[in-house]
Amino acid sequence: MSDGDLSVSADRLSRVFGSFVAVADASFTVPRGGVTALIGPNGSGKTTLMLMLAGLLTPTSGSMKVCGFDPVTQNYQVRSRVGWMPDQFGMWDSLTAREALTMTGATYRLSAEHRALRASELLDLVHLVEFADQPAHVLSRGQKQRLGLARALMHSPQMLILDEPANGLDPRSRIELRGIVRQLADTGTTVLISSHVLAELDEMVDDAVFLSAGRTVARETVRDARLSRSTWHVRAIDKDPLVNWLEEIHVPFALGADSSVSVNISGEENAARFLRDALAQDISIVEFAPRGGALEQTYLQLNEERR
């Protein structure tokens, strides 16, 4: 991939707080115009990494390019192209939702008409039109979260950095968030998103960067992750024929509580073959699905490796 197709290229980035290494040797790229997830356990350095990409924190060592610019030396260019929604952000409590957006527009040096127009557009996008003239302190947590997203979009950034945007959102808002993110990505915005809810990422991201103890430990496209899923959940109406058959063909399995079994099968090709064979044996299978999301398995494997 050439540089022009990358929104972020980070090379051996590290960040130290005092003597604590928060990010160590993180190297990864984010392709332009897709949704990339940043996944890692608590304290793995996701927020720190995003702060560096947004041009707020200098890396202790390493180099990066965001939208073609170096956040350290070309800070202004990066900030004008990147929209950032922090993990725990505040709202100007006494300002109304609309004012919060127009003020943000002013901080991005947008013209007054453009600000007003864009604010209405975004209030509509995040379904806050009826709260437009309510002060921010009456908004619920989820509404504030959506307003925060709108705020990050105010200057129509080329790249959006979302730090756990789904925090505190109800299922419906999560689905809508997913829709907004996909829509932005489809119109050419690059999105880097961190979240702990992996199942949700499965359905919206193209690509994932895994972070553990400040290191980038794996990167995976969701398609690859799907292909390499290894644990499958199988349930038959009567479990005995299934268990007998599995023992016969020497496939390792684990018995679940609800008379289901978990089988290790590597790859979707093999899974399809497995199901065909089972049906051919007249085993009445009623459930057959990969266990856990695509990303979840990779994530759990990583943690096992780390321990």
Binding site: G55, L56, P86, F89, T107, R109
Partner: peptide, 13 residues
């Protein structure tokens, strides 16, 4: 503490 300073710092101000 209120989380609004970083918003200004990240803007073009």
């Amino acid at each position: 503490n209120g989380g609004t300073l970083a918003i200004l710092q990240a803007s073009l101000l």
